[in-house]
Design a protein around this nucleic acid. Structure first.
Lengths: 255, 255
DNA sequence: GTAATTTGGTTTGTATGCAGTTAAAATTTA
DNA sequence: TAAATTTTAACTGCATACAAACCAAATTAC
């Protein structure tokens, strides 16, 4: 969404040539970002400077600056003398995720409802349109990216510079976790996704009405649905285990 | 605290030469970090590549990578073709700060109490020792840095990768806000700082006991004290205004 | 005299070559 | 054959040179 050093001003035909290099840079950023979000690049994968340098027509210097930015945003880790790798997802990070997500998501949607600008609401509706389309015709990667886009906009609406870093970090792994666990064949999952889409509509309505409390409650419901979807994978129907027992896991100790 | 690409392994005499460049890099990072925290570099100030390059004996390439990292951590902003500037502190960011800080601080201290490792507790005690020393003999910059160090360690204890980005961002501006508003001549302020030190001691005790609820409550009290200190500056005694009327400001609208 | 434009100097962005480091293959040795 | 050591190839980090963009002062046009 944002490459912090470039605001997407109107591109005049004459300016297109001058911006080529900068475009290649943000192109590379977007490419790597989406590749990581949809698991085209798996956690732990090495980013090959030489190859990316060739395919994107950039020398290694600006390439490495993009790596640094991706590291700052949480997409990759940089280790001394060993290049950049896609940031890992371990069992402990999954636990961290379950602890942090409900709190941050609730706060972001609450703030979004109280701060959203008209233009942002239009952008959110457009994102929701894309999301619905991806449910009908797209791959699960399309779905994950459209969903990611929807929630990134809610983050922009909230516009709190202190909450956004954590929110963005959560969105990265939320997309990746969804890519891991989503199975369109599963009946419950397709139903859940349809429910999620409905919740998006309600979220838009709450934001448009400036209804903070409603937005916060919807955030909670939306989160719980997403959590259930993960649990549906972790504990599939065939086992016929009582799903009601699972939520305790959220608070358990792993150490 | 951390320069993400280097873990401080034991430095053998023979390895010193090899690490020189890397040391200059992390030295530069620390220098800029502390300079920004203690207002030696003011918000909006330009970072001069040429001059820093000379004074730190680094070429511009690694220098710019440090800029990128500082940008990722929230210390500076990088704008296309216009270099790096110390990140701004506006009236709206102050409002964002007041909204986000209580929530994040509470979560971090709660997690710190449940996760802290013995070595980290020792580090926290050492940091508190430095903090007390800075109260007696140090400048207000020393005090801000020691306090920052104390809270950074609590963040490490919590160890939640999704909450840390926001927590670190908050700590940056908490230090800067303190530098703005702290006046050691003011009697109430010196009393507040002494209270803060006591609270640090209680926080250490709660963490050592693994008492989550107590830690969370102390976080709340510690935050409120800090907030009062800011209010003491915003509405000084001389005006003899009812302080009880002020807390509403925390929730007011600025748009 | 004011506004627009050009020009020179400064700063930022990129490419490339070299030096240092790591990882792996090949050789030696027991 | 297995372990240890040397060699070799590939990759990462840094410095420098060059190109592009920006800014401000000076010139020109009106």
């Amino acid at each position: 969404m944002k490459l912090c050093e470039r605001q997407p001003e109107a591109i005049t035909p004459g300016a297109r040539m001058k911006d080529m290099a900068n475009d290649r840079k943000s192109e590379l950023y977007e490419h790597l970002k989406t590749s990581i979000l949809i698991f085209r690049l798996l956690p732990g994968a090495n980013l090959d400077e030489a190859q990316l340098s060739k395919t994107f027509g950039l020398s290694r210097t600006p390439l490495r600056e993009v790596f640094r930015q991706l590291a700052g945003d949480g997409y990759v880790d940089i280790r001394a003398n060993r290049g950049a790798r896609v940031s890992e997802m371990s069992y402990t990070t999954l636990r961290d995720f379950f602890l942090a997500a409900p709190m941050i998501y609730g706060a972001i949607l609450r703030l979004a409802a109280s701060n959203a600008a008209p233009g942002q609401i239009e952008a959110l509706k457009a994102a929701q349109h894309s999301f619905k389309k991806s449910l009908r015709t797209g791959s699960s990667a399309d779905r994950a990216l459209a969903n990611n886009q929807f929630h990134e906009i809610t983050g922009d609406m909230a516009g709190n510079v202190y909450l956004l870093p954590s929110f963005r970090r959560l969105l990265i792994d939320h997309a990746r976790i969804s890519m891991t666990f989503y199975r369109p064949q599963n009946a419950r999952m397709t139903e859940n996704v349809s429910l999620a889409s409905d919740q998006h509509d309600h979220i838009i309505a709450a934001i448009e009405a400036g209804d903070e409390n409603s937005a916060a409650q919807l955030a909670d419901e939306h989160w719980k649905l997403s959590r259930d979807q993960i649990e549906t994978f972790v504990m599939p129907d065939a086992l016929e285990a009582p799903l009601g027992a699972l939520p305790q896991k959220t608070g358990m100790r792993t150490e």
